[in-house]
Design a protein around this nucleic acid. Sequence first.
DNA 1: CCTTACTAGTTGAACCTTCAACTAGTAGCA
DNA 2: TGCTACTAGTTGAAGGTTCAACTAGTAAGG
Lengths: 169, 169
Amino acid sequence: MLNHESTLDHMVEARWLTKDQQRVWRNYLAATRMVDSEIERQLQRDSGMPATYYEILVSLSEAPERTLRMSELAERNRFSRSRLSHAVARMEKEGWIQRRECPSDKRGAFAVLTEQGFAVLADAAPGHAEQVRSVLFDGLTEEQIAQLGEICATLRKAGPDPFAGIWIP
Amino acid sequence: MLNHESTLDHMVEARWLTKDQQRVWRNYLAATRMVDSEIERQLQRDSGMPATYYEILVSLSEAPERTLRMSELAERNRFSRSRLSHAVARMEKEGWIQRRECPSDKRGAFAVLTEQGFAVLADAAPGHAEQVRSVLFDGLTEEQIAQLGEICATLRKAGPDPFAGIWIP
DNA sequence: CCTTACTAGTTGAACCTTCAACTAGTAGCA
DNA sequence: TGCTACTAGTTGAAGGTTCAACTAGTAAGG
């Protein structure tokens, strides 16, 4: 016989979140998912690539010689090696990236952004930037933007492996 | 001939983000991805389910009779109908959910949380809550938590279709 | 009643991510 | 040299998500 009176709140009360934390967490989930999916949608629609590929292109475009070791590229974007390997394979087929072997370490590989890859990125960038502004920044006050920056920086430092992750110039 | 001097900043300067916005955006990406992946990792490891399935279980557990129309369930969690359909199919195979047809609208379907599904959720909840606290809340001050709540609520309201999305009690 | 337009939900293919297993090369040390 | 342990990167399978196409039922106007 089902007992629909019982709720989770009763069963785990000691280790559950406070009401306030619950509210913040659900708002966090809804907001970040809205932002991410809007970013994703725009990039996919206008440039035919997922946001993760865009980030790979950005990382390479900022690197000297537009070249990075696979492992370096993976770390900067917090990708697993496997994920990066698959992604670069796909992007190589598109002609956006070329792989080159590393002379000093024969296990290693470089990823090099091609001219075509750079052109694709340059083409995608304005629309993407516009979308980031309209989805994330336009709705917030300057103060909130500063607070958000602080909060995210704090979270990064608190997270596991605090020095890895998306690169900040 | 490659021209490695040119950077994206020069090419799109008018519509690009400010330096501050860039910094906040990259911190946002790194932080939200860190949080999401830690949440995902813990749930997958300890309860063998992705975070989205957890949210479906929560939505159903809070609904009267632990039952919701598929479309209602999709809206509350911002899932596409397709995504929900696939997910519920999987969860039905696990025995966590049962589908029932809707008498008043023969196109419609109800999703009902089973006792087993509820048990799985009750089992997963404490570890998940602990993870949410340790990854998101423990590193932040009370003030920052309040700010984050405000920011996320603002973003939700500003986003497209502001009334849909994850349900807040 | 009939036609047209719309809504609820499912399906299969294509794509992305994860996981575990694998290849191949490097490093330390005897 | 030979042994062991480790690192860089790839691969294939399994699972989740998206997209477009589809079925089936409802609704509105004539």
